[in-house]
Write a protein that binds this DNA or RNA. Structure first.
Lengths: 243, 243
DNA sequence: CATATAAAGTTATCAGACAACCTTACAAGG
DNA sequence: CCTTGTAAGGTTGTCTGATAACTTTATATG
């Protein structure tokens, strides 16, 4: 399919989404103050020139994002600042250096804790998954796609081994973001050269988990993350609590 | 349409949200495979015993959360694993003891890290917010609603002080869940008696943040969390990394 | 003055229709 | 055999109008 570029035909995308975006902008930029009541659905429908269904769907979307709250028989209100708690994270620019740094900063304590908990709670199935990921890592000729997948699998297996469902949820989300950013940054070239080192670090973590030593597992994970960070030219504060 | 049919969904709270939750569960638990097509809106409406509008809103919600994708004229599909980008967490049973424990377990490393980072990066505005929360905490006669709000505000201010947008996002989300669970558990009676102790713990954290000592801030937060956990009859493993 | 009741306004839900879009099948023509 | 046109059917997107549920406010009633 190598044809002329007809993609220019901007098919108007999802009406409710566009309207939700517009109303959301009004709120975020303060033209609709926090706590203030939005116009009624009827009025919004008329001003936007669409049906009430579309407006309703738009409002539902905003409510889902935590930007508005609706009360039947009363109206829709812009959510107060303090209560805006949506865990929705926009797919921002993957090359955003600061966002990347912040994500990594968040990841570190979670992964370290996960390593410690995994060392205590891991089952034999967990250990099998860890070894499987390590094998795939070793099998990968270079640090290509497969290596990245294996890396994700390793950390996911570790998070699962905590026996705490929230760890795979959170760390998986973060790790995926990070690895995506790395991929788009084309840092692969750099990584290819140090596969052996990376694998060695993972093996240390695995051994600690196997032997059931949480302190050692945490230490191994900490050093893995800091070294990986330095390979990515990240500068991070890391604290080690004495005694 | 005259007869009662109690097999259908009870109308206690927002219908679309509940249906979205149910369909979402079907997807997350694999009963609807990734990439598979969902039943048509008409069919879903009939099986749930609601109108198509409600089903549409439910699907819109799921689409918002990145769990389904819709294509006009074709259908709605469960999104492939790789493309799922949002963190979806069920509003589970607040009294679920295990979920509560797991949430707390996740919270600990995050809050500790946040305390350390806050000690390094806090601005004067951050410190003002911390003190404001502390004042409200002190002002509260008993550990009532107001005290809980102040507690949340304190931890939110601390997370904001990290200058890392992800910390308030994640910790705020978790903390709110936890406090909700506590409220519903009617543990207020217990808490009322130890307000002074709780406030004192917060003051120690604040002082460490003010003096810019990350290690001390972490230590203070750690002890606050572990003691709060013991007041809630939670047993947690905590690891302190030696040197 | 307190309480009950009515009225009006708003969101929630329902029902049915048409529009826009996609897929498929099949016929027509090369 | 292959390509193209056409029709049909199914699905989501949008519209319209109505009813139910809920809240607030005003009014009447004792």
């Amino acid at each position: 399919m190598v044809v002329a570029d007809f993609n220019q035909i901007r098919r108007s995308e999802h009406l409710p989404t566009r309207i939700a975006a517009q109303i959301g902008r009004e709120i975020l930029e303060g033209r609709i103050a926090a706590g203030e009541k939005l116009p009624t659905e009827h009025l919004l429908a008329k001003t936007f020139g669409v049906s009430r269904s579309v407006v309703r769907e738009a409002i539902a979307q905003l409510r889902n994002e935590g930007l508005v709250e609706t009360r039947q028989g009363v109206g829709a209100f812009a959510t107060e600042f303090e209560r805006r708690q949506s865990l929705r994270i926009e797919h921002g620019d993957p090359t955003d250096r600061i966002a990347f740094h912040n994500l990594y900063q968040l990841r570190i304590p979670l992964e370290i804790e996960a390593a410690g908990l995994a060392a205590v709670h891991r089952t034999s199935e967990d250990l099998a998954r860890l070894d499987e990921a390590l094998e795939q890592m070793t099998g990968a000729e270079k640090w290509t796609e497969q290596g990245i997948v294996a890396d994700l699998a390793f950390h996911r297996a570790l998070a699962t081994a905590t026996q705490n469902e929230y760890f795979p949820l959170f760390t998986g989300f973060i790790a995926e973001r990070i690895s995506l950013a790395i991929q788009t940054a084309r840092a692969n070239a750099v990584l290819e050269e140090i596969v052996e080192v990376t694998i060695a670090e993972h093996v240390v973590i695995r051994d600690a988990v196997v032997s059931g030593d949480p302190v050692e597992a945490r230490s191994a994970m900490r050093s893995h993350l800091t070294q990986a960070a330095s390979r990515l030219d990240l500068t991070l504060e890391t604290f080690r609590d004495e005694k």
